[in-house]
Amino acid sequence: MNLTLKIWRQNGSSDRGRMVTYEVQDVSPDMSFLEMLDVLNERLTLEGDDPVAFDHDCREGICGMCGMVINGVAHGEQRATTTCQLHMRHFEDGATVTIEPWRAAPFPVVKDLVVDRSSFDRIIQAGGFISVPAGSAPDAHAVPVPKDDADAAFDAATCIGCGACVAACPNGSASLFTAAKITHLGLLPQGQPERAARAKAMVEQMDAEGFGGCTNTGECTAVCPKGIPLDAIARMNADYLKTASK
């Protein structure tokens, strides 16, 4: 396959940045999207050009490092798929593909397609944890957890923090990410003591980072590679309102 790529190039955070067009030849349909970019980068390196910077790590769809907006859709149009697990067979030969970084003020561009997602870390630091006194590990059956709760908590915990929800949201909201963490911890007995304080602190941090508010468009859950459902946000809202009314 041959493709025309329009890629956002930005040499550092102070650069204005621009879209640059590249032609890529002989792309195998079995390549992943990142492997296709590797092919481009190999050529750029050999030609003495600056390779396109993009984040990636496990390339197995479980680490949350990769992510780019492909033809206007976070992680591309393939549902429940990270960019590294997106394969070139979903593209047509001769197609033009636009590749951009996540766009959000709290995700400043570091270089090209790489954005700084430290704002997510600060949301987690604000309350996405449980305070457990150090000591020997309790027996696994010491704290009973209903199976349904365990399953729902696990579903929420599959969030890999990639940031696609923010990238897809017309408001640049981090609600799905924050809600996934609040749901994951709030459903389990270990998360109860800090449940109210957690929702308040994490929502406040989300606002302080400059993320927008949720308008329930559902774009986040549609692009989420882990399919985190919208009811996580309802849960976050309920927890937040409970705290606020105290």
């Binding site: 859709v73 149009e77 951009e100 959000a104 927008g212």
Partner: peptide, 13 residues
């Protein structure tokens, strides 16, 4: 929260 818009036409999902 989104000072720089996407260049590609955003397709609602």
């Amino acid at each position: 929260a989104r000072p720089v818009k996407y260049a590609a036409r955003v397709k609602p999902q």
